[in-house]
Write a protein that binds this DNA or RNA. Structure first.
Lengths: 231, 231
DNA sequence: ATCGCTTCAAAGATATGACGTATTCAAGTG
DNA sequence: CACTTGAATACGTCATATCTTTGAAGCGAT
């Protein structure tokens, strides 16, 4: 789900470099310089730069060059920007931001899902909760992670809100990053597992308040754990 | 804060056409066709299309053309996409989505602001709450709208979370759209005004729970009003 | 010395022609 | 009927020329 071709290759190198702060705010690049650096033509550089401009990471001005914009202007919701920041030096800050965002969105999504989920959503949710429990009991962390991601993405999608639904991938990236980061120090806590089942049951039963509460407990725990990890 | 030059002009016409559904999902455009339609060169068309591709509104494939992607793939958090949808036929759906998002985010932002706001933030917040009250009493709806937007943006910014902060403009667009939409049927409700002061006071006093609660009441009311308007 | 105008050059913006390349579709073949 | 093959097509990339904007240097007048 990337941008393809040569502009994509340029983006894959230039985007992370900017998003991670390696190329700092206010730095000025020249088109010709980028052509040489990547060994591509003007066309390719311009298209890549246009995409970065669309994300508000850079601004191009005549007679000046391509200027890296201040972070406050970046489209911090752009999935590519999020990925790039998660992969680079801004990782901690990005995880914190996303933690708060999850804290706000996921309980609300769970509440909405309790009233908006389709029958099929509910079935899948129950099923995932069970598989999650099994994977946890067997300490199969890879499978567990996959199901955990699917579970949270499904709740977000089942909320019926397209904007919530689109955070599914981002939350997935956070969960992946988290397990990669502290290298899965312990098997998933039984309490957290139970909460996932609670969320599933509440959504299936149409109990919005309960679903919201249980989900809030989950993300509160995740945020606390994150803050502990990051100091 | 737009993309400039000829590609910007192409975007300003093509983007809304796609985002509003006027050009439906699955439609295929050819680069040459766009060149003629807008009277610009390949260079310009390609750059504009690349930006749309970055927003996941279209995908370009060899031998096929430029395909409008299904809505489910669009970057619904991209500010440009949001603006385009608010301006077009998708307006209601977009307002609903944003309503739920506000419902999730703004109370959380208010709570965070109570502990993270700077002294200057708190001063400005108090000041805005007062001016808001004055403008409401004088039934100066234009001034009121401006202060209302500034108020919500400030709370989001004061939360200290960059992602929340970036929703300021979007919330502003919602508020503007709302007053334009139902043509300011009545002067702002005194109760809503009082709630804004409550939010400001709670944040200034560091009372996170109260700030969150008052903000929740505000956005709940806004969402209810919206649902009433839209049926 | 400072202000304001002119001039120049740097760098992006746009247009265009040529060629490369993947992909689809259909004709042809077994 | 299935498979192969080839040609047409539309995007992808490169190279080059020209235009436009704009920051900065130069310069004269007050």
């Amino acid at each position: 789900m990337e941008i393809q071709g040569l502009p994509g290759r340029v983006l894959d190198e230039l985007g992370p470099a900017i998003a991670s702060g390696e190329i700092p705010e206010g730095a000025v690049l020249r088109g010709e310089e980028l052509e040489q650096r990547f060994g591509v033509s003007r066309t390719v550089v311009r298209e890549a730069v246009r995409v970065l401009e669309g994300m508000r990471l850079v601004a191009s001005r005549r007679r000046v060059g391509i200027t890296v914009q201040p972070k406050s202007l970046w489209d911090v919701f752009d999935p590519m920007v999020i990925r790039w920041r998660l992969a680079g030096a801004d990782r901690s800050a990005q995880l914190r931001s996303l933690g708060s965002l999850r804290m706000a969105v996921e309980p609300a999504a769970a509440a909405l899902a309790a009233t908006h989920a389709t029958d099929d959503d509910r079935r899948q949710l129950s099923s995932l909760a069970v598989e999650l429990t099994v994977a946890a009991r067997e300490a199969d962390l890879t499978t567990f992670l996959g199901h955990d991601i699917a579970f949270h993405a499904l709740v977000l999608r089942a909320s019926g809100n397209e904007m919530f639904a689109h955070l599914g991938d981002t939350v997935g990236a956070v969960l992946t990053g988290r397990t990669e980061y502290h290298l899965m120090p312990h098997q998933p806590e039984p309490y957290a597992i139970r909460l996932h089942r609670e969320v599933a049951d509440a959504i299936c039963g149409g109990d919005a308040a309960h679903a919201e509460q249980a989900m809030r407990t989950i993300v509160t725990g995740a945020l606390a754990e994150l803050n502990q990890q990051l100091g």
